[in-house]
């Protein structure tokens, strides 16, 4: 607390409640919520020629769905909320586990056991009260995928399993939405954008349930999904702004152990079941 300022009644009441709930230490300083939406908040965005007033308005009017509120989804959601993206959808069926905290920076120790969508939505609303956060606590299923994805401009694939990744890619192709794909394992990460007119996940690799690595069987350095999820947020924002060189048609590879980057071109594959005549 600033010296000389007397706490207001509601502040005292809130602190007492937080102490009672174990959510606040005795030494925790008071916080003043900054809700102003004047020009200062997005000043550094507006200073960019590629964003400006019009671009910031585009971000504020945009809708981004994040599938998976884990290692990748955490930084992606935080940066999109900070950027003022108007509506953020979060689809995840999971609850916060203590083993998530090493990399899933949306959550704190107090969130363990809570639904990820609920804890994440609270965190994003704290970060930017102007952002509308919608949650889908069943995750993205075969039943709800079309209805949910249909409501968004951009989808960020931040999930951890191939069946969901193929579902996202298929529905995005069907509905003409960009799918910003990110994936990680150990020290490695990959990012690409599957979008109308370009290849999809089935162009890159046919679906084979027998050849689907289980991500949970591998370690990951906590900051690696931070890097990749942030790149996904960048790609999503560039797509909304219509600026820069997209990763559509190419996949970026980062090996953060050797600190080397590489990329491959992904052609539209005539053997892909969505784009050609092949069966995948």
């Amino acid at each position: 607390m600033r010296r000389g300022r007397k706490k207001k009644a509601w502040e005292m009441r809130r602190e007492n409640e937080m102490r009672r709930d174990g959510k606040m230490s005795e030494k925790m300083p008071e916080r003043k919520r900054e809700t102003s939406r004047d020009g200062a908040r997005y000043l550094r965005h507006r200073m960019l020629a590629q964003v400006g007033e019009d671009g910031q308005k585009k971000l504020e009017e945009s809708r981004v769905l994040i599938v998976g509120a884990g290692g990748l989804g955490s930084p992606a959601a935080l940066y999109l909320a900070a950027a003022g993206v108007g509506t953020i959808g979060l689809a995840d069926f999971d609850r916060v586990d203590v083993s998530n905290l090493q990399r899933q920076i949306l959550y704190t120790e107090l969130d363990v056991g809570r639904k990820k969508t609920e804890a994440a939505a609270a965190r994003l609303r704290e970060r930017n009260g102007a952002v509308r956060v919608l949650t889908y606590e069943d995750g993205l299923t075969e039943e709800n995928a079309r209805e949910i994805i249909g409501k968004y401009d951009v989808v960020i694939d931040a999930c951890d399993n191939f069946p969901t990744r193929y579902r996202i890619s298929d529905v995005c192709m069907e509905l003409g939405k960009p799918d910003v794909y990110g994936a990680i394992c150990e020290f490695m990460g990959q990012v690409t954008v599957f979008a109308p007119g370009g290849p999809c996940l089935r162009c890159l690799s046919p679906e084979d349930p027998a050849a689907a690595p289980d991500a949970r069987a591998f370690g990951v350095l906590g900051a690696v999904p931070g890097v990749i999820g942030s790149l996904q947020a960048v790609e999503a924002m560039k797509w909304i702004l219509g600026t820069g060189g997209s990763l559509k048609g190419r996949m970026l590879f980062l090996d953060l152990l050797s600190m080397r980057a590489d990329e491959i071109e992904i052609p539209v594959n005539p053997r892909c079941s969505r784009h050609g005549t092949g069966n995948s």
Binding site: D160, N161, A183, I184, C185, A212, A215, I264, R271
Partner: peptide, 26 residues
């Protein structure tokens, strides 16, 4: 791009440029 069912069939020439990449899912 080469499909998995062709891994046994495609014979590589000396001047070929082969890329094999892990597709991550985590």
């Amino acid at each position: 791009l080469i499909w998995p069912e062709d891994y046994d069939r495609v014979v590589l020439k000396e001047e070929d440029d082969l890329q094999i990449i892990h597709l991550l899912g985590g």
